[in-house]
Nucleic acid binder design. Structure first.
Length: 556
RNA sequence: GCGCUCGUAGCUCAGCUGGAUAGAGCAGUGGACUUCUAAUCCACCGGUCGCAGGUUCGAGUCCUGCCGGGCGCACCA
């Protein structure tokens, strides 16, 4: 029995009570009842506080309602016991056989177990890592790469149509500074103070000089443009390669330049003008974002005729909506949180509902410790520990998992030395080890000629009546709600935490319950049932790791 | 000054939109491998949930005010 099925039994029980007039509720019986897994074993397999919630509207003591629900619920199939406890909790125990069938359900669903249709029909655009193509990606980008990609996988698992997008800031003054820096480096001059610094600038500059000696003869201004463009091309290619190697794939790389070149900026501003939120003042063109909660109005076109960055953003948003996305998710660093309000106001100015069509997630910055000191991440100062270096040190799995483990809105510290040194007690290995262990058992079963465990119907669910078996079954039953909740709340870290808890539950099961027959022992129903449970657990861990983009090894 | 955000065990962090005795990992102490992977398991140690009020049957969680850290407040990108 899954929590969802148990919930339904509770809903049914309550409806019956309301229909019979045993409980009077103005709004009728609730459509949903949440069941939770108690921390203490004595509180049953599942518990609910529904009676306490209904006490006030029903005008009766919670324990009295609980008692009525308990009697009714006991008549539902698969319910072994229902107790009223404390102020009015319902503690529920589920029949072993009813619980045991879950292993078969997991096996039947296979790779799709955990997926659901809670977001079916939604077209979602997920934008993350908006970087300047002027240097390697740093740790902050890396966090979003892991988290953004995982969120994309989660939303897809909930049935949404997801497009992952990265916006390229390839327009503006910083691009020229980049070009100047590269050229200076190529000519052996020192890089301007306000330019880009770091070893990669020297390397890139000299590389361009080496590969394109013909640029030496160009006039200075053309030389600058050539360096800027070649540097852009090479740097972007490197970013993309680094991300692909990190298993983060973008469906669309969106260039800010093309927004202007294709006239989409003009179109976007026109759209806002039609909505009536654009005006001219002091020789500049403004958007009246204060109509929708912004602190002040924002300039789209400066009095000198140049478009602001915000104008590009506006056009980009309008374009996303016109490409058919119901919802646009932005994942921004904490240093941009001051931008949130105007983005939401901008969406409202475009005639949209900010609660419905746009969503901004803020990720706290990542601190990096190395040698006990905090590393300041400045691209210009050249003190960068990049995605590439981090991956080289820790490996893709460990880094992705570590970055996915924490909620985006909490700051985190990555101690490079610790990650390097402790690589064997990183939680990712704990989960992966469980998967490898499960795989080893299943290999052993094949060797012994017991293949029944792989089949959904090849076992007797009723023999899975040990506490550790029940714990494990209930853990497996959680995956669907973990996935839908993690997706709904945009919190991939819940998947990681769930995997750790489930791996722990499995390790305890393994410690106490022998799965394969020993020696010359003949396979029994218990062996076959436990094999089904083991196979189901492997499916769950494999699917969960997949949602985080982390590999599920067969051996370690 | 205004705004956003975070303060939970020695360290890194969870805490399932208000539930029962606040949890993991690491660090520390002590145990468990003749048979499926010991990268594992078990036990112990460890807390004024920043502080003070408030809301209610019930608050780490919601509200207010302080204290402390981070970040942001452009006709910059």
């Amino acid at each position: 029995m899954t929590p969802e099925q148990l919930s339904q039994h509770l809903v049914d029980a309550l409806s019956t009570l309301v229909d019979e007039g045993a409980v009077r509720l103005v709004d009728g019986a609730p459509q949903q009842v949440r069941v939770e897994r108690p921390k203490v074993r004595e509180h049953g397999d599942y518990a609910t506080n529904i009676a306490m919630q209904l006490a006030k509207p029903a005008g009766r003591p919670p324990r009295e309602i609980a008692s009525l629900v308990a009697d009714r619920l006991l008549q539902a199939p698969g319910i072994a016991a229902v107790d009223v406890a404390g102020p009015g909790f319902l503690n529920i125990r589920v029949d072993a056989a009813a619980q045991g069938v879950l292993a078969g359900e997991v096996l039947a669903a296979g790779a799709s177990y955990g997926s659901n249709d809670s977001l079916a029909g939604q077209r979602i655009n997920v934008e993350f890592i908006t970087a300047n193509p002027t240097g390697p990606l740093h740790v902050g980008h890396t966090r979003w790469a892991a988290l953004g990609d995982a969120l994309g996988r989660l939303l897809s698992a909930c049935g949404a149509e997801v497009v992952r997008e990265s916006y390229i800031n390839d327009r503006g003054a910083q691009m020229d500074k980049f070009g100047e820096s590269l050229l200076a480096a190529a000519q052996g001059r020192s890089v301007p103070d306000d330019g880009y610094h770091g070893a990669y600038v020297i390397e890139l500059g000299t590389r361009i000089d080496r590969e394109h000696p013909e640029l030496r003869d160009l006039p200075a201004d053309e030389q600058l443009v050539a360096y800027r463009e070649e540097g852009y091309r090479l740097q972007l290619a490197e970013q993309r390669q680094d991300l692909e190697d990190f298993r983060t794939h973008f469906d669309v790389w969106y260039s800010e330049r093309t927004l202007h070149a294709d006239g989409r900026v003009k179109h976007g501003i026109e759209k806002l003008r039609q909505e009536g939120h654009v005006y001219e003042a002091d020789g500049a063109l403004w958007m009246r974002t204060t109509d929708f909660g912004d602190d002040k109005d924002r300039v789209l076109i400066r009095s000198n005729g140049e478009h602001t960055y915000f104008a590009s953003d506006t056009a980009y948003y309008v374009d996303k909506r016109e490409r058919g996305f119901d919802r646009c998710i932005y994942m921004l660093g904490a240093d941009h949180h001051g931008y949130v309000r105007r983005l939401l106001a901008m969406a409202a100015c475009a005639g949209d509902d900010p609660d419905e069509h746009i969503e901004v997630l803020i990720g706290q910055l990542v601190k990096v410790l190395r040698g006990g000191d905090e590393l300041r991440l400045s691209k210009r100062a050249g003190t960068i520990l990049g995605l590439r270096e981090l991956v080289d040190i820790t490996g893709v799995d460990a880094l992705r998992y570590t970055l996915c483990r924490y909620p985006a809105d909490s700051s985190m510290t990555v101690d490079v030395d610790a990650v390097t040194r402790q690589s064997s007690d990183n939680p990712v290995y704990y989960v992966q080890y469980a998967h490898a262990r499960l795989s080893a058992i299943l290999r052993g079963a094949v060797d012994l000629g017991i293949a029944a465990g792989e089949r959904a119907d090849g076992y007797d669910p009723a023999v899975l009546d040990q506490p550790r078996e029940g714990d494990l079954l209930r853990a497996l039953a959680e995956l669907p709600r973990v996935v839908s909740q993690a997706a709904a709340r945009r919190e991939p870290h819940r998947v990681a935490r769930y995997l750790e808890a489930t791996a722990a539950t499995f390790h305890r099961f393994y410690d106490e319950c022998r799965v394969l027959p020993m020696g010359d022992e003949e396979p029994t129903d218990v062996h076959r049932a436990r094999l089904a449970l083991v196979a189901a657990t492997r499916v769950v861990l494999g699917n969960g790791l997949g949602l985080l983009g982390v590999s599920a090894p067969e051996r370690m």
